[in-house]
Nucleic acid binder design. Structure first.
Lengths: 170, 170
DNA sequence: CCGTGGTCGTTGTCCGCGCAAGCACCGCGC
DNA sequence: GCGCGGTGCTTGCGCGGACAACGACCACGG
Protein backbone atom coordinates (compact mmCIF):
# COMPACT_ATOMS: atom_id res chain seq x y z
CA UNK A 1 0.00 0.00 0.00
CA UNK A 2 1.47 3.29 1.12
CA UNK A 3 2.06 5.17 -2.10
CA UNK A 4 0.57 2.83 -4.63
CA UNK A 5 -2.78 1.33 -5.48
CA UNK A 6 -4.74 4.53 -5.96
CA UNK A 7 -6.24 3.91 -9.37
CA UNK A 8 -6.14 7.48 -10.60
CA UNK A 9 -2.57 7.92 -9.54
CA UNK A 10 -1.63 4.62 -11.08
CA UNK A 11 -3.36 5.46 -14.32
CA UNK A 12 -1.36 8.62 -14.85
CA UNK A 13 1.89 7.42 -13.37
CA UNK A 14 4.73 7.23 -15.84
CA UNK A 15 5.22 3.94 -17.56
CA UNK A 16 7.85 1.77 -16.01
CA UNK A 17 10.62 0.21 -18.04
CA UNK A 18 8.76 -2.93 -18.89
CA UNK A 19 5.66 -1.06 -20.02
CA UNK A 20 7.78 1.35 -22.00
CA UNK A 21 9.53 -1.44 -23.84
CA UNK A 22 6.26 -3.15 -24.64
CA UNK A 23 4.56 0.00 -25.87
CA UNK A 24 7.30 1.91 -27.63
CA UNK A 25 8.58 -1.32 -29.02
CA UNK A 26 5.27 -1.81 -30.76
CA UNK A 27 5.46 1.62 -32.31
CA UNK A 28 9.05 1.24 -33.36
CA UNK A 29 8.72 -2.27 -34.62
CA UNK A 30 5.75 -1.33 -36.73
CA UNK A 31 7.47 1.69 -38.19
CA UNK A 32 10.66 -0.20 -38.84
CA UNK A 33 8.94 -3.14 -40.48
CA UNK A 34 6.66 -1.03 -42.65
CA UNK A 35 9.47 1.15 -43.82
CA UNK A 36 11.70 -1.78 -44.66
CA UNK A 37 8.99 -3.77 -46.41
CA UNK A 38 7.81 -0.76 -48.36
CA UNK A 39 11.33 0.03 -49.49
CA UNK A 40 11.91 -3.58 -50.50
CA UNK A 41 8.74 -3.72 -52.53
CA UNK A 42 9.39 -0.38 -54.14
CA UNK A 43 12.91 -1.33 -55.08
CA UNK A 44 12.03 -4.73 -56.45
CA UNK A 45 8.77 -3.96 -58.25
CA UNK A 46 8.12 -0.23 -58.03
CA UNK A 47 5.15 -0.97 -55.85
CA UNK A 48 4.26 0.90 -52.66
CA UNK A 49 3.08 -1.17 -49.76
CA UNK A 50 -0.49 0.14 -49.82
CA UNK A 51 -0.79 -0.75 -53.47
CA UNK A 52 0.46 -4.22 -52.76
CA UNK A 53 -2.12 -4.66 -50.06
CA UNK A 54 -4.93 -3.67 -52.39
CA UNK A 55 -3.81 -6.07 -55.06
CA UNK A 56 -3.39 -8.83 -52.53
CA UNK A 57 -6.84 -8.53 -51.06
CA UNK A 58 -8.33 -8.48 -54.54
CA UNK A 59 -6.32 -11.50 -55.57
CA UNK A 60 -7.51 -13.41 -52.54
CA UNK A 61 -11.12 -12.41 -53.11
CA UNK A 62 -13.45 -14.71 -55.05
CA UNK A 63 -13.06 -13.61 -58.63
CA UNK A 64 -10.19 -11.22 -58.25
CA UNK A 65 -12.65 -8.45 -57.62
CA UNK A 66 -13.91 -6.58 -54.61
CA UNK A 67 -16.36 -3.85 -53.81
CA UNK A 68 -14.69 -0.52 -53.24
CA UNK A 69 -16.04 -0.08 -49.75
CA UNK A 70 -14.99 -3.55 -48.64
CA UNK A 71 -11.55 -2.93 -50.02
CA UNK A 72 -11.29 0.37 -48.19
CA UNK A 73 -12.20 -1.31 -44.95
CA UNK A 74 -9.70 -4.13 -45.47
CA UNK A 75 -6.70 -1.95 -46.05
CA UNK A 76 -7.68 0.58 -43.39
CA UNK A 77 -8.15 3.45 -45.81
CA UNK A 78 -10.88 6.03 -46.19
CA UNK A 79 -13.22 5.61 -49.13
CA UNK A 80 -11.87 8.71 -50.77
CA UNK A 81 -8.35 7.51 -50.30
CA UNK A 82 -9.24 4.27 -51.96
CA UNK A 83 -10.86 6.07 -54.88
CA UNK A 84 -7.60 7.82 -55.71
CA UNK A 85 -5.54 4.73 -55.08
CA UNK A 86 -7.68 2.75 -57.49
CA UNK A 87 -7.44 5.66 -59.91
CA UNK A 88 -3.69 5.24 -59.89
CA UNK A 89 -3.90 1.49 -60.26
CA UNK A 90 -6.29 1.86 -63.16
CA UNK A 91 -4.01 4.40 -64.80
CA UNK A 92 -1.20 1.87 -64.49
CA UNK A 93 -3.36 -0.87 -65.93
CA UNK A 94 -3.35 -3.09 -62.87
CA UNK A 95 -7.08 -2.98 -62.19
CA UNK A 96 -10.24 -1.92 -63.96
CA UNK A 97 -13.50 -0.72 -62.53
CA UNK A 98 -16.62 -2.72 -63.10
CA UNK A 99 -20.07 -1.52 -62.24
CA UNK A 100 -22.05 -3.69 -59.91
CA UNK A 101 -25.09 -5.26 -61.48
CA UNK A 102 -27.02 -5.75 -58.28
CA UNK A 103 -26.42 -2.24 -56.96
CA UNK A 104 -25.99 0.55 -59.44
CA UNK A 105 -24.30 2.71 -56.84
CA UNK A 106 -21.46 0.29 -56.33
CA UNK A 107 -18.31 -0.53 -58.21
CA UNK A 108 -15.99 -3.45 -58.25
CA UNK A 109 -12.29 -3.11 -58.66
CA UNK A 110 -11.10 -6.04 -60.76
CA UNK A 111 -7.54 -7.25 -61.19
CA UNK A 112 -6.27 -7.22 -64.75
CA UNK A 113 -3.86 -9.83 -66.03
CA UNK A 114 -1.04 -7.37 -65.58
CA UNK A 115 -2.22 -6.82 -62.04
CA UNK A 116 -2.24 -10.52 -61.29
CA UNK A 117 1.19 -10.97 -62.78
CA UNK A 118 2.72 -8.06 -60.89
CA UNK A 119 1.12 -9.17 -57.67
CA UNK A 120 2.41 -12.68 -57.98
CA UNK A 121 5.92 -11.40 -58.51
CA UNK A 122 5.65 -8.97 -55.63
CA UNK A 123 4.06 -11.49 -53.35
CA UNK A 124 7.24 -13.54 -53.21
CA UNK A 125 9.25 -10.48 -52.27
CA UNK A 126 6.80 -9.36 -49.66
CA UNK A 127 6.24 -12.72 -48.03
CA UNK A 128 9.95 -13.33 -47.89
CA UNK A 129 10.37 -9.94 -46.26
CA UNK A 130 7.69 -10.55 -43.68
CA UNK A 131 9.22 -13.87 -42.83
CA UNK A 132 12.78 -12.63 -42.72
CA UNK A 133 12.14 -9.47 -40.75
CA UNK A 134 9.34 -10.62 -38.52
CA UNK A 135 8.07 -14.17 -38.45
CA UNK A 136 11.44 -15.83 -38.35
CA UNK A 137 12.23 -14.10 -35.11
CA UNK A 138 9.63 -16.24 -33.40
CA UNK A 139 8.78 -19.85 -32.91
CA UNK A 140 5.35 -21.00 -34.06
CA UNK A 141 4.24 -21.04 -30.46
CA UNK A 142 5.34 -17.47 -30.01
CA UNK A 143 3.58 -16.47 -33.17
CA UNK A 144 0.42 -17.95 -31.77
CA UNK A 145 0.93 -15.98 -28.59
CA UNK A 146 1.28 -12.80 -30.62
CA UNK A 147 -1.88 -13.56 -32.56
CA UNK A 148 -3.63 -14.15 -29.30
CA UNK A 149 -2.31 -10.84 -27.99
CA UNK A 150 -3.74 -8.92 -30.95
CA UNK A 151 -7.13 -10.40 -30.47
CA UNK A 152 -7.18 -9.00 -27.00
CA UNK A 153 -6.28 -5.56 -28.26
CA UNK A 154 -8.51 -5.34 -31.30
CA UNK A 155 -12.11 -4.31 -30.91
CA UNK A 156 -13.80 -7.06 -32.88
CA UNK A 157 -11.49 -7.77 -35.75
CA UNK A 158 -11.06 -11.43 -35.11
CA UNK A 159 -11.37 -12.29 -38.76
CA UNK A 160 -8.39 -11.31 -40.89
CA UNK A 161 -10.77 -9.11 -42.81
CA UNK A 162 -14.33 -8.42 -41.96
CA UNK A 163 -15.08 -7.71 -45.58
CA UNK A 164 -15.61 -11.14 -47.05
CA UNK A 165 -18.99 -10.53 -48.55
CA UNK A 166 -21.42 -13.36 -47.95
CA UNK A 167 -23.18 -12.33 -51.10
CA UNK A 168 -23.95 -14.51 -54.04
CA UNK A 169 -21.31 -14.40 -56.72
CA UNK A 170 -22.94 -13.46 -59.99
CA UNK B 1 8.95 -33.99 -48.39
CA UNK B 2 6.70 -34.03 -51.38
CA UNK B 3 5.43 -30.48 -51.60
CA UNK B 4 7.07 -28.85 -48.62
CA UNK B 5 10.52 -28.11 -47.25
CA UNK B 6 12.02 -26.43 -50.28
CA UNK B 7 13.30 -23.20 -48.78
CA UNK B 8 12.43 -21.01 -51.74
CA UNK B 9 8.99 -22.49 -51.96
CA UNK B 10 8.53 -22.06 -48.24
CA UNK B 11 9.64 -18.45 -48.38
CA UNK B 12 7.02 -17.53 -50.93
CA UNK B 13 4.30 -19.85 -49.73
CA UNK B 14 1.22 -18.07 -48.45
CA UNK B 15 1.17 -17.36 -44.77
CA UNK B 16 -0.75 -19.87 -42.75
CA UNK B 17 -3.43 -18.85 -40.30
CA UNK B 18 -1.13 -18.48 -37.33
CA UNK B 19 1.35 -16.36 -39.26
CA UNK B 20 -1.44 -14.28 -40.69
CA UNK B 21 -2.87 -13.54 -37.28
CA UNK B 22 0.52 -12.60 -35.91
CA UNK B 23 1.40 -10.33 -38.81
CA UNK B 24 -1.88 -8.70 -39.75
CA UNK B 25 -2.71 -8.41 -36.10
CA UNK B 26 0.35 -6.27 -35.63
CA UNK B 27 -0.72 -3.98 -38.45
CA UNK B 28 -4.29 -3.75 -37.29
CA UNK B 29 -3.48 -3.38 -33.63
CA UNK B 30 -1.06 -0.58 -34.38
CA UNK B 31 -3.53 1.23 -36.61
CA UNK B 32 -6.36 0.78 -34.18
CA UNK B 33 -4.37 1.94 -31.16
CA UNK B 34 -2.87 4.95 -32.90
CA UNK B 35 -6.18 6.08 -34.26
CA UNK B 36 -7.92 5.71 -30.92
CA UNK B 37 -5.17 7.41 -28.93
CA UNK B 38 -4.87 10.22 -31.43
CA UNK B 39 -8.62 10.82 -31.37
CA UNK B 40 -8.66 10.79 -27.57
CA UNK B 41 -5.83 13.26 -27.33
CA UNK B 42 -7.30 15.50 -29.98
CA UNK B 43 -10.71 15.50 -28.31
CA UNK B 44 -9.41 16.12 -24.81
CA UNK B 45 -6.64 18.62 -25.50
CA UNK B 46 -6.68 19.47 -29.21
CA UNK B 47 -3.33 17.76 -29.53
CA UNK B 48 -2.35 15.36 -32.31
CA UNK B 49 -0.39 12.31 -31.31
CA UNK B 50 2.82 13.36 -33.04
CA UNK B 51 2.74 16.67 -31.23
CA UNK B 52 2.27 14.90 -27.96
CA UNK B 53 5.25 12.71 -28.64
CA UNK B 54 7.47 15.69 -29.33
CA UNK B 55 6.43 17.43 -26.15
CA UNK B 56 6.90 14.25 -24.18
CA UNK B 57 10.42 13.59 -25.34
CA UNK B 58 11.34 17.17 -24.64
CA UNK B 59 9.82 17.06 -21.19
CA UNK B 60 11.75 13.91 -20.37
CA UNK B 61 14.98 15.39 -21.68
CA UNK B 62 17.39 17.12 -19.30
CA UNK B 63 16.27 20.71 -19.29
CA UNK B 64 13.12 20.38 -21.28
CA UNK B 65 15.09 20.93 -24.42
CA UNK B 66 16.40 18.77 -27.19
CA UNK B 67 18.39 19.15 -30.35
CA UNK B 68 16.24 19.12 -33.44
CA UNK B 69 17.99 16.17 -35.02
CA UNK B 70 17.76 14.06 -31.88
CA UNK B 71 14.09 14.87 -31.61
CA UNK B 72 13.48 13.88 -35.22
CA UNK B 73 15.16 10.57 -34.63
CA UNK B 74 13.18 9.89 -31.48
CA UNK B 75 9.78 10.41 -32.98
CA UNK B 76 10.64 8.71 -36.24
CA UNK B 77 10.21 11.78 -38.40
CA UNK B 78 12.31 13.29 -41.12
CA UNK B 79 14.25 16.40 -40.23
CA UNK B 80 12.14 18.50 -42.55
CA UNK B 81 9.01 17.09 -41.03
CA UNK B 82 10.25 18.04 -37.60
CA UNK B 83 11.07 21.56 -38.74
CA UNK B 84 7.44 22.14 -39.74
CA UNK B 85 6.11 20.41 -36.67
CA UNK B 86 8.20 22.61 -34.41
CA UNK B 87 7.08 25.58 -36.50
CA UNK B 88 3.51 24.77 -35.58
CA UNK B 89 4.35 24.24 -31.92
CA UNK B 90 6.20 27.53 -31.83
CA UNK B 91 3.27 29.29 -33.47
CA UNK B 92 1.05 27.84 -30.75
CA UNK B 93 3.44 28.94 -28.03
CA UNK B 94 4.30 25.48 -26.77
CA UNK B 95 7.98 25.57 -27.59
CA UNK B 96 10.60 28.08 -28.56
CA UNK B 97 13.75 27.64 -30.56
CA UNK B 98 17.07 28.29 -28.93
CA UNK B 99 20.29 28.44 -30.80
CA UNK B 100 22.98 26.08 -29.67
CA UNK B 101 25.96 27.82 -28.16
CA UNK B 102 28.43 25.07 -28.87
CA UNK B 103 27.40 24.57 -32.48
CA UNK B 104 26.01 27.52 -34.37
CA UNK B 105 24.35 25.26 -36.92
CA UNK B 106 22.19 23.55 -34.34
CA UNK B 107 19.00 24.50 -32.59
CA UNK B 108 17.31 23.40 -29.46
CA UNK B 109 13.58 23.16 -29.14
CA UNK B 110 12.67 24.22 -25.62
CA UNK B 111 9.37 23.65 -23.86
CA UNK B 112 7.62 26.80 -22.72
CA UNK B 113 5.57 26.92 -19.54
CA UNK B 114 2.43 26.56 -21.63
CA UNK B 115 3.99 23.57 -23.28
CA UNK B 116 4.81 21.94 -19.97
CA UNK B 117 1.34 22.61 -18.66
CA UNK B 118 -0.40 21.24 -21.72
CA UNK B 119 1.83 18.22 -21.79
CA UNK B 120 1.19 17.40 -18.17
CA UNK B 121 -2.54 17.55 -18.75
CA UNK B 122 -2.31 15.49 -21.90
CA UNK B 123 0.04 12.98 -20.35
CA UNK B 124 -2.64 11.74 -17.99
CA UNK B 125 -5.03 11.22 -20.89
CA UNK B 126 -2.47 9.49 -23.02
CA UNK B 127 -1.06 7.22 -20.36
CA UNK B 128 -4.54 6.24 -19.28
CA UNK B 129 -5.35 5.45 -22.90
CA UNK B 130 -2.24 3.37 -23.41
CA UNK B 131 -2.98 1.45 -20.27
CA UNK B 132 -6.65 0.97 -20.95
CA UNK B 133 -6.34 0.01 -24.62
CA UNK B 134 -3.07 -1.86 -24.54
CA UNK B 135 -1.16 -2.56 -21.36
CA UNK B 136 -4.12 -3.73 -19.31
CA UNK B 137 -4.73 -6.52 -21.76
CA UNK B 138 -1.53 -8.15 -20.58
CA UNK B 139 0.03 -9.37 -17.40
CA UNK B 140 3.41 -7.92 -16.48
CA UNK B 141 5.04 -11.13 -17.59
CA UNK B 142 3.34 -10.89 -20.96
CA UNK B 143 4.41 -7.27 -21.28
CA UNK B 144 7.96 -8.38 -20.71
CA UNK B 145 7.56 -11.00 -23.40
CA UNK B 146 6.33 -8.37 -25.81
CA UNK B 147 9.24 -6.12 -25.01
CA UNK B 148 11.54 -9.03 -25.60
CA UNK B 149 9.82 -9.68 -28.92
CA UNK B 150 10.40 -6.13 -30.14
CA UNK B 151 14.05 -6.33 -29.34
CA UNK B 152 14.32 -9.27 -31.65
CA UNK B 153 12.61 -7.39 -34.45
CA UNK B 154 14.31 -4.05 -34.13
CA UNK B 155 17.67 -3.56 -35.79
CA UNK B 156 19.66 -2.04 -32.97
CA UNK B 157 17.21 0.11 -31.08
CA UNK B 158 17.69 -1.45 -27.73
CA UNK B 159 17.43 1.81 -25.88
CA UNK B 160 13.99 3.40 -25.82
CA UNK B 161 15.57 6.31 -27.63
CA UNK B 162 19.09 6.49 -28.88
CA UNK B 163 19.03 10.24 -28.63
CA UNK B 164 19.87 10.90 -25.00
CA UNK B 165 22.78 13.21 -25.51
CA UNK B 166 25.67 12.50 -23.19
CA UNK B 167 26.65 16.13 -23.51
CA UNK B 168 27.30 18.57 -20.77
CA UNK B 169 24.25 20.56 -19.72
CA UNK B 170 24.67 24.31 -20.05
C1' DC C 1 -46.79 6.29 -56.68
C1' DC C 2 -43.82 9.60 -54.14
C1' DG C 3 -40.98 11.01 -50.30
C1' DT C 4 -37.30 9.99 -46.87
C1' DG C 5 -33.28 8.32 -44.73
C1' DG C 6 -29.24 5.81 -45.52
C1' DT C 7 -25.35 4.04 -48.45
C1' DC C 8 -21.80 4.03 -52.34
C1' DG C 9 -18.50 6.29 -54.84
C1' DT C 10 -16.43 10.62 -56.36
C1' DT C 11 -14.74 15.36 -55.96
C1' DG C 12 -12.83 19.80 -53.72
C1' DT C 13 -9.89 21.16 -50.37
C1' DC C 14 -6.60 21.07 -46.89
C1' DC C 15 -2.85 19.09 -44.15
C1' DG C 16 1.24 16.52 -42.92
C1' DC C 17 5.18 14.23 -44.55
C1' DG C 18 9.37 12.88 -47.45
C1' DC C 19 12.85 14.01 -50.75
C1' DA C 20 16.12 16.92 -52.82
C1' DA C 21 18.33 21.24 -52.82
C1' DG C 22 20.22 25.11 -50.45
C1' DC C 23 22.54 27.78 -46.80
C1' DA C 24 25.27 28.26 -42.76
C1' DC C 25 28.48 26.26 -40.13
C1' DC C 26 31.99 22.71 -38.10
C1' DG C 27 36.44 20.34 -38.18
C1' DC C 28 40.23 19.02 -40.51
C1' DG C 29 44.38 19.43 -43.35
C1' DC C 30 47.42 22.26 -45.57
C1' DG D 1 44.90 31.90 -42.90
C1' DC D 2 42.10 29.15 -46.70
C1' DG D 3 39.71 25.43 -48.84
C1' DC D 4 37.03 21.17 -48.47
C1' DG D 5 34.01 17.45 -47.18
C1' DG D 6 30.50 16.63 -43.78
C1' DT D 7 26.57 18.05 -40.76
C1' DG D 8 22.27 20.67 -38.97
C1' DC D 9 18.37 22.99 -40.19
C1' DT D 10 15.28 25.06 -43.51
C1' DT D 11 12.74 25.59 -47.99
C1' DG D 12 10.40 24.15 -52.62
C1' DC D 13 7.82 20.78 -54.32
C1' DG D 14 4.97 16.74 -54.98
C1' DC D 15 2.32 12.95 -53.04
C1' DG D 16 -0.88 10.47 -50.38
C1' DG D 17 -4.50 10.67 -47.16
C1' DA D 18 -8.65 12.58 -44.38
C1' DC D 19 -12.89 15.20 -44.12
C1' DA D 20 -16.94 17.31 -45.89
C1' DA D 21 -20.06 17.92 -49.56
C1' DC D 22 -22.25 16.07 -53.49
C1' DG D 23 -25.01 13.19 -56.91
C1' DA D 24 -26.74 8.75 -57.79
C1' DC D 25 -29.02 5.17 -56.00
C1' DC D 26 -31.43 1.64 -52.72
C1' DA D 27 -35.04 0.28 -49.37
C1' DC D 28 -38.86 1.26 -46.92
C1' DG D 29 -43.19 3.43 -45.48
C1' DG D 30 -47.04 6.08 -46.41
Amino acid sequence: MSTVERPSAAASAPLDGRELLAWRGLLRAHASLCKALDAELEAAHGLPLTTYEVLMYMHDAPKGKMRMCDLAECILLSRSGLTRLVDRLQRDGLVIRQSCSSDARGSYAVLTEDGVRLLEEARATHLAGVRRLFLEKFTPAEQALLGNAWERVLPGAGSPCGCVPPVVPS
